[in-house]
């Protein structure tokens, strides 16, 4: 493996770790900041209230992102 590859892989690994650390921060921001009030309006989508879609959508997004990262972190 050449030097560039090593540097690249080290950098990728670090970015992955940074991502794993960043994920809960993003989650906390989306759930625990006033940004949530933006989605509490009386709007609805496919009969579902916007807040319902927002909370469960973000939740699902976090789960999928965590899964992707966990798999990559695990494979190393």
């Amino acid at each position: 493996m050449s030097r560039t590859d090593l540097a690249l892989s080290a950098s990728r690994k670090r970015k992955l770790r940074d991502g794993a650390k960043l994920l809960p921060v993003i989650g906390a921001f989306l759930f625990l900041s006033p940004i949530i009030t933006v989605f509490t309006g009386p709007l609805s989508l496919f009969g579902l209230p916007l807040i319902f879609i927002y909370v469960f959508g973000v939740w699902l997004g976090l789960v999928l992102a965590a899964r992707a990262m966990a798999r990559r972190l695990e494979s190393r």
Partner: peptide, 13 residues
């Protein structure tokens, strides 16, 4: 449920 979710997706911490 949100609290534990944040803790678990932040497992690296």
């Amino acid at each position: 449920y949100l609290g534990p979710t944040l803790v678990f997706i932040g497992w690296w911490w």
